[in-house]
Amino acid sequence: MSLAIAVALLTGAGTWLLVRGGAVRLILGFILLGHAANLVIIAAGGTDRRVAPIVDGSTPLDAAADPLPQAFVLTAIVITFGVTVYLLGLVARIAKKSPSSELEEEFDSDDEGVGNR
């Protein structure tokens, strides 16, 4: 239930930011949705077992958390970082091309260009 609430909150806020529009909101919204997706995957593994899956003998195996979702989430986080960095690059490029005050409009008109292609 706790993860469900967190996921609802994070996807809600992420969607809000994305739909409001604007380059910065887009990046922040993307980051929040990334958190939400990671929590969904962790939740899928079950959160009733919460001992780290290190099998050095001291861990009771039936209490260990599911390691597979953890592996997925770990790489997902790094990929989110990669994509965030890339998005930032795009934003920075647009910012450099046009006066900063027009950034948001610039971002939207660029988008329109794609739509009409």
Binding site: A4, G12, A36, V40
Partner: peptide, 17 residues
């Protein structure tokens, strides 16, 4: 935001744990 958040939260609650 409300629709997406509510559905995601509901899905997590219904399908996990």
């Amino acid at each position: 935001a409300v629709v997406v958040g509510a559905i995601s939260g509901l899905a997590v609650w219904v399908f996990t744990g």
